[in-house]
Design a protein around this nucleic acid. Structure first.
Lengths: 235, 235
DNA sequence: ACGCGCTTGTGAACGCGCGCACAAAGTCAG
DNA sequence: CTGACTTTGTGCGCGCGTTCACAAGCGCGT
């Protein structure tokens, strides 16, 4: 009767116990990356007062394959109803809980340049559940400035605004990114989102993700280049 | 002797012809996504007047595995020298050529809100080779405004600024994204980078990439949430 | 000239993720 | 209650990408 990890076979006898709200199953990274997509689509549906939704329709709205969607949802154990579909509200709360969006978690943004301001003002930055709580910058000239309802503080005050579970966002120039990153780590931040075009080094226990605007553009440039080559060959 | 597509086996007899500067090999998508990384690291090395670099060192600088880097580079046929490494300048030109950065290609940005301004001002948006050429917005109040050295034009003038090979960047609110996307496609754009948090639909011949700022944050939130759960269990 | 050591290029194995296709399970009408 | 229809959950095969490990090559010192 102990809550052991679910095995592959998944016999009917195991399913016979539906009162296991917390299955500590490992969720594939690829699935995690899609959950926010589903969540957004679900919120849109909820706004339209939709009660239930089939995997087919939700997959369409999220722009993914329906089988993939079902497999993704099965990972977090939120069962739909066969012949009917998924309950929109229930699914929203399931995914929100899994993503840790239920309890609002703190986000601190360092670097109030062009990009930083854009992120701060990104109204639906993270539509529901996430939102920036603190703005910091190394430039003392910016300290005290009001942006998007927040007062810019100096980066040296980092330790004061960071709470356990805070997520750090780096929107500084590349030259300052590693320094800021180190400061964040020292302040106890274990999840960092980096917008600066640099490779950052962090301790093993820190999660680091990066968004590189220029790389995306270069990838498109590659494909565009390829197309023009193909045309040249065809012509 | 005709330039046919490279086949899987890739026998030694094929390699016996080294005078084929253009091998029309298919480059894996994952490799393409890393080329900009290598390029950036190489530019940094070139600025330090470094002549040659080993795969080990370059991999370190780019934050990837060295075997992966070697395999990536082998795809585009730019051979290094065994026992020495890769020639920095040569590699830069190889990668730049492959990415289509040699001839400057046009980028048009639609949506001059917070994010659009940030992108326009993103000095090293795409450090070398790429840069935004036109700013457009649906708000006539913004028309004529000077941002980052460019004059904002109305989105209806789209057809006038798009040239064959142009890349479109959507930085509008989600509600306007699909409309703008359709306009871009109609104007002949076949590569689009979408920053709006929406699923866009495009014809099959159009390449669409998306950057979703809030999704990245939610992924981090998930991991942070997981950590706190793990601690809870441990404690 | 010749071997020694360094570095590249790649064969092969492994693991992950995707998508098909189908059985299980539920709903609804009569 | 029964049977037909709908939709979920998932077993399975496939292809891509990553990594190890090593043979092939190249320069350099002697």
């Amino acid at each position: 009767m102990t809550a052991r990890r679910q095995e592959r076979p998944l016999t009917t006898s195991e399913l016979a116990e539906p009162r296991v709200p917390r299955r500590r199953e490992v969720i594939p990274e690829a699935t995690v990356a899609r959950l926010p997509l589903y969540l957004r689509a679900l919120h849109a549906l909820a706004d339209d007062a939709t009660q239930t939704i089939s995997s087919e329709a939700l997959a369409e709205a999220a722009g993914v394959n329906s089988a993939k969607l079902r497999k993704d949802l099965s990972h977090l154990g939120s069962y739909g109803t066969r012949g009917v579909g998924y309950d929109v509200q229930h699914l929203i709360s399931q995914i929100s809980r899994e993503l840790g969006l239920s309890r609002r978690c703190s986000v601190v943004l360092v670097g109030v340049g062009n990009l930083g301001r854009a992120l701060a003002g990104y109204g639906g930055f993270a539509s529901r559940g996430l939102g920036i709580d603190a703005l910091l910058d190394a430039d003392r000239a910016l300290t005290g400035e009001q942006i998007a309802g927040l007062t810019v503080r100096h980066v040296d005050d980092l330790a004061e605004v960071v709470v356990p579970g805070s997520i750090g966002v780096i929107a500084t120039p590349a030259s300052a990114a590693q320094t800021v990153c180190d400061q964040l780590v020292r302040a106890g931040v274990t999840s960092i989102l980096n917008f600066a075009p640099t490779v950052l080094t962090v301790p093993a226990h820190v999660d680091l993700r990066k968004v590189d605007l220029s790389i995306e553009l270069q990838i498109l440039s590659f494909h565009e280049h390829r197309k023009s080559l193909a045309e040249g060959v065809t012509a």
